[in-house]
Nucleic acid binder design. Structure first.
Lengths: 207, 207
DNA sequence: AGCGAACCTGAGCGGTCGCTCACATCATGG
DNA sequence: CCATGATGTGAGCGACCGCTCAGGTTCGCT
């Protein structure tokens, strides 16, 4: 690279002063609001900046692209969900079989109740950002965890079960029923009957 | 309306001559290809017309908007799936319980195997077109069918089952496992083991 | 052959989008 | 209290998008 290349560092910047932190936060909050209210492709960066009460220039000081902005919001959302998930599943994996399943289901529902509307937008509308890979990673982690759990409790399962296939089925079922609740019946996210039914589906399938 | 209003009929037109039918077909085929290959928001109408080997003007002779074009493709896809579904479930709803469930599951998987990649795009990317209502209608129809079926077979189910909740659970489970297969394990769509597992999940939950 | 209808063409309009940059304002340490 | 970096501004650029329209080409029919 010749000397003329000024190394134009990409416009990503780390906020330091409290004022800047507030700006970043306002932008993320506004992004969430607009995404939920208007949908992904009506959520233009200009509109987001306006809703956040900052100029479009400020937005691009902290996020190098719209994609990066949405990805950052996604990270924050996933982080919040993970905290709930881990808190609710910390001590139960050695609990009695049925109770362990129940707690995991309960945790999934609670995690998705953090911000169901935003979650719905991510699931339904946000395009194949590179971040989709991250979702796949989470998915794969869940699959491995489930697989290990089933292996560990092998003696309590009905015989003849293909553990690989069974873990795929179980993970997909719990996730999917949770998502179905998010999309169509958000009222069920906090309903104990939902927890019981999903637990029954899984336990009856496995034992 | 004053006389100056020329009643500018919207640019939708019905193709008559075979040449025109071929054009319409080429446009729909190209739309499917581009949607799968590039994703919804990189699928510009100009790009689609180019891929179809017709001019952009021709495209807008038959489809009044991009939305209408995608909706038409969606209709065609849903139609193809419905044919498979109905063919596979026509005679089995009076079959023995377990066998009936199995055939429905088998039919769902077969229907989704028609064009899984396109289905994936519709599920993941196509925004809240008005057509989303149509999907909800199908969903609701499935729910009612399931509810009626369970009612009809009430004596074969375990007691204490809340039929409303149970039909939601069953429909969501079958749909969701099918979709999980479409998205992550398309190989399972034609795998008999998958049919067996999903049937087991449902039957064990219900009886 | 001739003619009206059906069909097809593609340059380009009006608009929006993501994003940049030259500059203003604020906050802090010397 | 001023100098300097951190922070904030917003007009506007270039690209692309959905879509139109004035006019050409082909078809079906007499």
């Amino acid at each position: 690279m010749p000397a003329t290349q000024k190394l134009r560092t990409a416009p990503r910047k780390q906020a330091i002063q409290p004022r800047a932190l507030a700006t970043v936060d306002a932008i993320l909050e506004a992004t969430a609001r607009i995404l939920v209210r208007e949908g992904y492709d009506h959520a233009s960066t200009n509109r987001i900046a306006e809703a956040a009460g900052v100029s479009i220039g400020s937005l691009y000081q902290y996020f190098p692209s719209k994609e990066a902005l949405v990805a950052a919001l996604m990270d924050r959302h996933v982080e919040e969900m993970s905290i709930v998930l881990q808190r609710e599943t910390a001590r139960v994996l050695d609990a009695p079989f049925e109770s362990a399943i129940e707690h995991v289901v309960q945790a999934m529902l609670a995690a998705h109740a953090v911000n169901p509307k935003l979650h719905k937008v991510f699931v339904e509308q946000v395009p194949r950002v590179g971040r989709l890979q991250k979702i796949r990673d989470i998915e794969e982690g869940a699959l491995r965890l489930a697989r290990d759990f089933l292996e560990h409790r092998r003696t309590e399962l009905r015989p003849g079960l293909d553990l690989d296939l069974a873990s795929f089925i179980v993970v997909a079922t719990v996730e999917a029923l949770t998502h179905a609740a998010v999309l169509y019946r958000p009222d069920l996210l906090a309903d104990r009957r939902m927890v019981n039914e999903v637990r029954d589906v899984v336990v009856r399938y496995l034992t």
